Simulated assay, not measured.
Amino acid sequence: MVVEDEVIIALDLSETVRDMGFRVEGPYANNGHAFIAIDQEMPDFAILDVRTADGEVFPLADALTEAGVPIIFHSGHITDHEIAERYPNAQTAAKPCPPSKLMQMIAEANKRAH
């Protein structure tokens, strides 16, 4: 699952996930649409921007965490320390993140999902 409200970044993240052989849910620009999607099917892992078109992503991240879904926060608006306090098992990638680092994080999240 990709939740990102900046179109170019959302498309780039989605393409990276597809290039690694995964099916992409989204990208979703807001929490509302992402919540509808997880009501239908939980993703194996999620890449989430902290600020979305309809507010902060934390309610969605809480729901995904409760369901055991590995999360990668991809944002320029929050520090690794702030994420680690609230989501100790999540990974963080500051924007802009080199594709090679993001691919390593996706591979790690996929391992945790299985």
Rank of each mutant, 00 (worst) to 15 (best):
M42D: 02
M42R: 14
M42I: 07
M42G: 01
M42L: 15
M42S: 09
M42Q: 14
P43R: 02
P43A: 00
D44G: 15
D44F: 08
D44W: 08
D44M: 12
D44E: 15
D44I: 01
F45M: 09
F45C: 10
F45V: 05
F45P: 14
F45R: 10
F45T: 04
A46S: 10
A46M: 00
A46Q: 05
A46F: 03
I47L: 12
I47F: 03
L48C: 04
L48W: 01
L48S: 02
L48Y: 02
L48V: 00
D49Y: 01
D49F: 00
D49M: 00
D49Q: 06
V50T: 11
V50Q: 15
V50I: 15
V50D: 04
R51Q: 13
R51N: 15
T52R: 05
T52H: 02
T52W: 03
T52N: 12
A53N: 02
A53L: 09
A53C: 05
A53W: 09
D54K: 11
D54E: 02
D54A: 03
D54Y: 04
G55S: 10
G55W: 01
G55N: 08
G55C: 08
G55T: 13
G55F: 10
G55V: 09
G55Q: 08
G55I: 11
E56D: 13
V57E: 10
V57L: 06
V57G: 07
V57W: 06
V57F: 03
F58V: 01
F58S: 08
F58R: 13
F58H: 14
F58T: 06
F58I: 02
P59V: 07
P59W: 11
P59K: 11
L60Y: 09
L60C: 05
L60P: 11
A61M: 12
A61H: 07
D62Q: 15
D62M: 13
D62I: 15
D62L: 14
D62Y: 14
D62K: 15
A63H: 12
A63Y: 14
A63F: 14
A63E: 15
A63Q: 15
A63V: 12
A63G: 13
L64Y: 05
L64E: 08
L64F: 01
L64P: 11
L64M: 07
T65M: 02
T65D: 07
T65I: 05
T65Y: 09
T65V: 05
E66M: 06
E66R: 14
E66D: 12
E66F: 00
E66G: 11
E66I: 00
E66P: 01
E66H: 07
E66L: 05
A67I: 09
A67D: 04
A67G: 09
G68N: 11
G68P: 10
G68Y: 05
G68M: 04
V69P: 14
V69G: 13
V69D: 12
V69F: 14
P70Q: 08
P70Y: 05
P70L: 04
P70G: 06
I71Y: 12
I71D: 13
I71N: 11
I72V: 08
F73P: 06
F73S: 08
F73W: 03
F73I: 00
H74P: 03
H74R: 06
H74V: 03
H74M: 04
S75W: 01
S75L: 02
S75E: 01
S75Q: 00
S75V: 04
S75H: 00
S75D: 00
S75C: 00
S75Y: 00
G76S: 08
G76W: 07
G76F: 07
